[in-house]
Simulated scan of single mutants.
Amino acid sequence: MELAGPSRTALATAYARAYHQVANEPRVFTDLLAGRILGVTDAELTALHTAGPDHPGHAGASHRPRRLFIAARARFAEDAVRDAVATGVRQAVILGAGLDTFACRNPYPDLRVFEVDHPDTQNWKRERLATAGITAPDTLTFAPVDFETETLATGLAAAGFDRTAPAIFVWLGVVVYLTPTAIDTTLAYIAAQATPTDLVFDYGTPPATPADHTALRARAARVAALGEPWLTSFTPADIATKLRHFGFTHIDDHPAQNLITTYTSLLDVTFPGPHLIRARR
């Protein structure tokens, strides 16, 4: 099998979600489409722990702490969508969706899901869905945005997104790769949405200890070698200040390590750096 796609990190994330479904570990997050969209069987996924580093799924599937973080991140986000729907929100925007399958598993018949990504990435995803025999539901709207030539605002407007209605924005695995200016531009757009507006995202933090520094440098070097360098990190205090500046008043911040422990009861998994936030205005 050969998968061609625009992003090795997006593929690694997809493989991590898929391998979590068959791994011998506490199930944090269930996604029955994760393997299908990649076109891999359970046996092929199970074999990934012996795959070499050149395999596109090796980094996602073989590293247990990262895999559990990705599963915890997905669960945290989908729980937030569930809670938003319970309050009456009927629009969800997934920024940088990659091969995420929530929109195809969407259990809420009146929730419209907008997936925002680069046109090439979305064409790749559409091909994967077609090959896997996964039907995109009527509640899914693709919103291709080439940020070199257009804005998030124009892309979502063209897709029929309603700026006057409440929404939840899910922004996973993206912030660390953006410049501070790009982050602020996106936050300003989200903050101008009709209230209530929910936002779920993850971000990286500066290393707190020498051991964290070593681990984070190694991870940063791996993704930089793939042409996707980390550009921005925040302390929890700094990101809270930024969110309050944009009008978010309810800020719920969780270190990834704590979420992994909460969801799995595993005490031997160490994954410093990422935090997950749910904010509301």
Rank of each mutant, 00 (worst) to 15 (best):
M1F: 02
E2G: 07
E2A: 09
A16H: 07
Y19N: 01
F29G: 00
T30L: 11
G35F: 02
L38G: 01
L45I: 02
H49R: 08
G52M: 10
H55Q: 05
H58F: 13
A59S: 14
G60H: 04
G60M: 04
R64M: 12
F69T: 02
F69M: 04
A72Q: 00
A80N: 02
R82P: 06
I94A: 01
D100N: 12
A103L: 01
P107W: 00
D110R: 06
R112C: 04
F114L: 01
V116G: 09
H118Q: 07
H118S: 06
P119R: 10
P119G: 12
P119V: 03
D120R: 10
K125I: 01
R128F: 05
I134V: 08
T139Q: 11
T141A: 14
F142V: 10
A143T: 01
A143H: 04
D146Y: 10
E148H: 15
E150M: 11
T151W: 14
L152F: 11
T154D: 07
G160P: 06
G160D: 03
T164A: 13
A165V: 14
A167M: 07
I168E: 02
W171V: 00
G173D: 06
D184L: 03
A188C: 10
Q193T: 14
T195W: 13
V200Y: 12
V200D: 01
F201A: 08
D202G: 11
D202R: 03
Y203G: 09
A208T: 06
A208S: 07
D212V: 00
T214M: 09
T214C: 04
T214D: 15
R219W: 14
A221V: 04
V223T: 11
V223F: 07
A224G: 14
E228F: 04
P229N: 13
L231E: 15
L231M: 12
T235I: 03
T241I: 08
K242P: 08
L243V: 10
R244M: 11
H245I: 01
F248K: 05
H254K: 12
Q257G: 06
Q257E: 13
Y263D: 03
D268I: 05
F271Y: 15
P272R: 09
